[in-house]
Design a protein around this nucleic acid. Sequence first.
DNA 1: CGAGCATACATCGGTACCGATGTATGTCGA
DNA 2: TCGACATACATCGGTACCGATGTATGCTCG
Lengths: 176, 176
Amino acid sequence: MLELSILGFLYDTPLHGYELRKRITALTGHVKPVAESTLYPAIKRLEKAGLLARETQPGSTAAPRHVLTLTGKGRTELRRRLAEPAGGDITDENRWFVVLAFLRHLPDAAAQAEVLLRRLAFLEEPASFFYAGDRPLRAEELDDPFRRGILTIARATSEAELRWLRATLGSLGRGV
Amino acid sequence: MLELSILGFLYDTPLHGYELRKRITALTGHVKPVAESTLYPAIKRLEKAGLLARETQPGSTAAPRHVLTLTGKGRTELRRRLAEPAGGDITDENRWFVVLAFLRHLPDAAAQAEVLLRRLAFLEEPASFFYAGDRPLRAEELDDPFRRGILTIARATSEAELRWLRATLGSLGRGV
DNA sequence: CGAGCATACATCGGTACCGATGTATGTCGA
DNA sequence: TCGACATACATCGGTACCGATGTATGCTCG
């Protein structure tokens, strides 16, 4: 999720680490903050893997900045990660939102639709948080008001997303 | 999140690890699966901290089961974690849902309401995923259909949850 | 003119988690 | 009867992440 954010932001324009951090914080920080001690090692990992290059820009305002640029390999890798998201990128809403935030970087409307279809398939599976045996329970069947809340909220989210997914797939030429 | 699930399920009734895993998988597995190699060390941690006790039950069907029971300390600790959730338990929906799933174990309606009020305060903060300077952007202001989707879905979730929170706080005697 | 804050990056120790693998046993269908 | 599968637990190596801490610089405000 963090690496995807880094690649995604750098795909648009080179940035130094500090600015990158501010953008990632704006995107997902209200849900899950990014620690500096997580970001800088992640940058190093991606650099070591040849996905981004670092150019030191001496003292513009404070300590010297390291301007980060995606390499060709990095650009390819971002598109690969967007086109073939890992399982958790589809099922975990936090990670899914990061995929969505950069999905426009896939050059092909068909490839974009393919990814949306995976999320659609996941949301269409009958799943709950609570079961009687194998049967998923509905909100009305629960006594616990807090568990009822979980189902109520999840239901609303799911319905809104399904509406959006179907509409967007339609406009991508992949009606369902 | 994992530890909270373990404590939460064991609060109701003693369980062995394998059954615990099935229940955790039912609760949150469709979003984020639990690996066995994560669960068993977590159980050991909690045992070492004196929060649960283990009793070996020789060969009922297969390998010997370790039936896990919450200790008094464990019961207190669960209530403490529910009454004073960490920051991420409030902001991250995945973790928040686990808190909700077991919030009924707080014996006091006032304490339950206190926790819901923290989530309410978080949801009422004006936050977005995308900004123009400091101003949060609305879905209509974005060109990117995928980013517009993020805001559309998040908005629907937030509205549904706010409705539910206010209704539930009302019935707990803490109208807002 | 000095304190505090934002900028900008880095390391270190510890923890949580995961995939792979191992070890058993009982059950059920081909 | 033989393999596949579910039950049931465990360890090990590697990775991701975090909090704490360190090191600078420049700007702003009292």
